[in-house]
Design a binder for these strands. Structure first.
Lengths: 232, 232
DNA sequence: TAGTGGTCTAGACCACGGG
DNA sequence: CCGTGGTCTAGACCACTAG
């Protein structure tokens, strides 16, 4: 593990141990340099990380402060959110799983791939369905998937099992009325509101390997997306 | 303007001039160091910026590549998105503007502020209403607003006129059926789907100054949100 | 005006990818 | 193995905040 990641972890631990609240001040950088015995640049790198995760913010000439957005009961739009308090009681039901030729529209997105896997699942928060997922995985990059794997967290398998690292993603949000079929799976009524999130996931070398369509149940879906227009 | 920002601009210009496409390779870092006559760290800082804006991605041991997501006709979730192609024909209609005591719920969010401004506006894309906005501004931080200002881009005024810099924001997304009043303003039917985005905007020193509720017209609202799980 | 974060440098060495 | 990006250092100097 890299030094700046270790430092970031220690800072998070520091916040937790000292029960720091929103707006509370952290030690100054020079102190951290001594404390953690690394260079200033490394501290800055760690702070950048925490900044991006919405955990801290810096004010020039003043100090570094704790930022803890209220994201209770929220689904983070990005999974890298610092305090991922959304590790609830999540279950998955597989509706469809098959190896297949990718539809044209998907082939266009997962460039150069013709074969792949189709996965349709419903995610439950407790016993409430909160999102319907339809995903296509490129076989070129994900050579093997099984019904068993698909019952669990797929991305964990991709990372642990295949050494496949997610690098970045494009997300397109759309609001629309859901179809009868979607309504059935989400235990709603046809025509009810739905948030459709179309995702394209890219692996380490920039090749797209997964293209998904998520339709969120509007009743159980509060989503959190923090921003930080900063760097370093 | 800082060096890394200038470098970032130059790289964007380079991409445009050479008509680089998704996946095309950029010059290597060492070349950029010579080309722009700055240190490697500064180049990295510029690249971090571009990375965060979804313009490039880096592959260790291989190179730096252009990333240009298809965001045609999309509203960026964050306004700092690199290629903001959404500078269309946008008009604003002010529905309500007044100086007022902030509601309790808003006071809780804009901590310590009791007085402020309330602004209700509809944003039109061409002649189609695409979002209904209800905003409260803390008078402590935004001491003056006028009906005239509110007819234009408020954040531009805050930046140029008041020297107020937006630092970061919390966003909460919710899908729901819109009310009769909202339907009237968005030229829709009551009960139609709507995306509600609750924003809290924080200024440079971490104090929240604006709390907004946006309800998007589901017919004209495709939203883009890129991610990049990286730093430096 | 002191203190704190922000920018920048020059250079050493590491880690990964691809030939 | 070479080339490329990634990490880290030590230190100089700038810019902003607050007392």
């Amino acid at each position: 593990m890299k030094k700046y990641q270790i430092v970031a972890k220690k800072i998070i631990a520091y916040i937790a141990e000292n029960h720091l609240q929103q707006g509370d001040k952290l030690p100054k950088i020079t102190e951290m340099v001594e404390q953690f015995d690394v260079s200033k640049a490394t501290i800055l790198q760690a702070l950048t990380l925490l900044n991006q995760q919405g955990i801290i913010y810096k004010v020039q000439g003043s100090g570094i402060f704790v930022r803890m957005p209220a994201m209770k009961d929220c689904i983070p739009l990005y999974s890298n959110s610092g305090f991922s308090s959304y590790i609830n009681d999540i279950k998955v039901k597989v509706i469809e799983f098959k190896e297949t030729t990718l539809p044209d529209s998907v082939q266009k997105i997962l460039k150069g791939s013709t074969e792949g896997y189709k996965v349709v699942r419903v995610h439950y928060n407790g016993d409430k369905p909160y999102v319907l997922e339809e995903s296509y995985y490129s076989k070129k990059i994900v050579p093997f998937l099984s019904e068993e794997i698909v019952k669990g967290p797929i991305f964990e398998y991709l990372r642990e099992g295949l050494g496949l690292q997610l690098r970045f993603s494009d997300k397109y949000l759309e609001i629309r009325k859901i179809t009868a079929e979607e309504a059935r799976l989400l235990e709603l009524n046809p025509g009810d509101p739905g948030l459709q999130v179309s995702d394209i996931y890219y692996c380490d070398n920039g090749i797209p390997f997964d293209c998904s369509k998520l339709v969120y149940n509007y009743q159980n879906s509060k989503i959190y997306a923090e921003s930080s227009d900063e760097l370093i």
